[in-house]
Amino acid sequence: MSIGTEPGPIGATTDLLSVEDLVVHFPIRRGLVVERTVGHVRAVDGVSLGIAAGRTYGLVGESGCGKTTFGRAVLRLEEPTGGRVRLDGTEVTGLRSDRLRRFRSRMQMVFQDPLGSLNPRHNVDMLLAEPLKVHGVGSRSEQRRLAIETLDAVGLPSSVLERYPHEFSGGQRQRLGIARALMLRPDLVICDEPVSALDVSIQAQVMNLLEQLQGEFNLTYLVIAHDLAVVRHMSDRVGVMYLGNLVEEADSEAIYDDPRHPYTKALLSAVPQPDPEAEADRERIILKGDLPSPADPPSGCRFRTRCPWAADICAEEVPVWREVGDGHRVACHFDL
């Protein structure tokens, strides 16, 4: 989604959002009377990335890779175990209760399940006015005007104000979810699987809408999705996550044209395309087995248990980041 500004220098200090070595571990507790911690689920295990203002960063990975937890930890909806998150110079990870609550107006979230994320007993008016109320924005009539304005921006008429979430179709509900996220005019919007619960024909409407709103409201997006085509379409820059780690990061075009990490290669080759001719003679990398448990990740490179190119070194050493092109970095021992 490259509306507006030209791409800036990658990893520059002008990043609106910068995440450094973010770690989220969930303790595994056992015991009936006295609970003790018997281990940790390493949901996110040291992820760093930066997003320039007005751009879209796509975070892609399969279920269990920690992408959702990462998004929530950035917004402090999940408490990070370690690392730093900075938004426009403010260290989000250092904010304490009430300051954090007030700071939330600058970073918002769009959820996967549009129905589940809307309180079923609140009508649209209440849904949209609530963020304004709790942040003390405007009078009642101004709140209503803002609500109508935002509804208009997401393509819904003001007549829906009195309606309840269950009265809308899936696509309309997602529009409501987006409208609510925009009510406080945030800088950063994290979209967690924004279209995966929707029908194909509706997905495109919502993607186009998000694209249009980015220009209109000056938004910076972090798009989290499992669908590589969706991420490619929406993002300027893409990071691929596997088992709590980022394994490859590059500009959208580079990562899809020239994937360097075996996992990225396998992911890309696994997506079926609506083109029988291409499908017939496509080379597929079929990965062995399933995702290992994030409570007990493999030593060295975490992908090695499923990697077709795995060698001895992969079990012994954790691969370090290598620059393989302009802003294209990969965490793999081999130059594939």
Binding site: D199, S201, A204, N208, A278
Partner: peptide, 27 residues
């Protein structure tokens, strides 16, 4: 045609605009 125009594809140039079908079946 509408369905095919609605899906982002890995085999087409990047940022090719999507042309969704209007409305939804529920409408």
């Amino acid at each position: 045609v509408g369905l095919l125009n609605s899906i982002p594809r890995l085999d087409l140039p990047i940022h090719e605009p999507l042309r969704p079908i209007r409305g939804s079946i529920a409408d």
